[in-house]
């Protein structure tokens, strides 16, 4: 049983969002990089739990990123992956990234591929569905629970106004979110072990780039809060009704 977990790197959730080069590039100065929380907290931990239950499970990690991604992938190995592959490219295009992962997935013969729900920087929610299409596998998005018995996965996923439970026979691509697992902190043993786990760097295969970022903008600043006295809530109601037209 082979699981491929997709790991992406994102700025820390408290990072200052600023742009350089005439607003064409994200300003990476002083940015702390983290594993995208959906990848770290949910999909990776769920894969580790499956391995803890069944020693025959092996977990491979994949990231498409440049050398800046190495600490991130090492941390993921410290949490519990067996080996990692880094595709050496800094692309932002979903199709390019998904093609890289799918090509490795097709070679590796994985039973299960986990992605996060979305990256918290570019918020694409695209890579999982694309990998599924490019590997001709079923795709379950926005999973909140994942159980596996033999080769049948039972997955709960978020749908509009509720949830849906479904059985799917592997192979399968799943995008994970809150509920699938609980965040873990790497321990010292894991960190030591990660140093010697294999991390293979490969060059990207040929793939088209179908989109490119032209520029960034910051939202206009808020005008400032209008405070209403706590003993005058009817004034707030008036403002929301007449001025903001929100109720």
């Amino acid at each position: 049983m082979k699981i491929l977990v997709c790991i992406s790197k994102t700025p820390d959730t408290t990072a200052k969002i600023a742009f350089t080069d005439g607003n064409t590039k994200f300003d990476e100065a002083n940015v702390q990089w983290i594993i995208n929380p959906y990848d770290e907290w949910y999909s990776l931990v769920r894969a580790i739990e499956l391995k803890e239950k069944d020693a025959a499970v092996s977990i491979h990690l994949i990231t498409v990123g440049n050398a800046d991604s190495e600490p991130i992938i090492r941390k993921a190995l410290a949490l519990g992956g067996d080996e990692a592959i880094r595709v050496n490219s800094n692309s932002n295009d979903a199709y390019f990234i998904a093609t890289q992962i799918a090509s490795i997935a097709n070679e590796g013969g994985y039973d299960l591929i986990f992605t996060g729900k979305e990256t918290i920087d570019y918020n694409g929610s695209s890579i999982g569905g694309m990998i599924a299409e490019l590997t001709d596998a079923p795709f379950i998005s926005l999973a909140t629970k994942f159980e596996l018995v033999g080769t049948t996965a039972t997955i709960t996923r978020e749908i509009d106004g509720g949830e849906e439970v479904a059985d799917v026979i592997l192979p399968l691509v799943v995008s994970c979110q809150k509920g699938v697992a609980e965040q873990r902190i790497p321990n010292m043993r894991g960190i030591m072990a990660a140093r010697t786990k294999p991390l293979k760097v490969v060059e990207p295969t040929d793939a088209d780039t179908l989109s490119s970022i032209i520029s960034f903008e910051l939202p206009p600043a808020k005008a400032g809060v209008k405070l209403v006295a706590a003993d005058n809530v009817s004034e707030l109601v008036r403002l929301l009704h007449e001025e903001a037209k929100a109720i």
């Binding site: 199709y95 979305e118 694409g124 569905g129 599924a132 299409e133 179908l210």
Partner: peptide, 20 residues
């Protein structure tokens, strides 16, 4: 929810660029 499951998959199938 549906768009997040389907749109990118269609894009990959048609080899179309996507903005989500």
């Amino acid at each position: 929810q549906t768009g997040k499951a389907v749109a990118a998959r269609v894009a990959a199938r048609l080899k179309a660029g996507i903005v989500s």
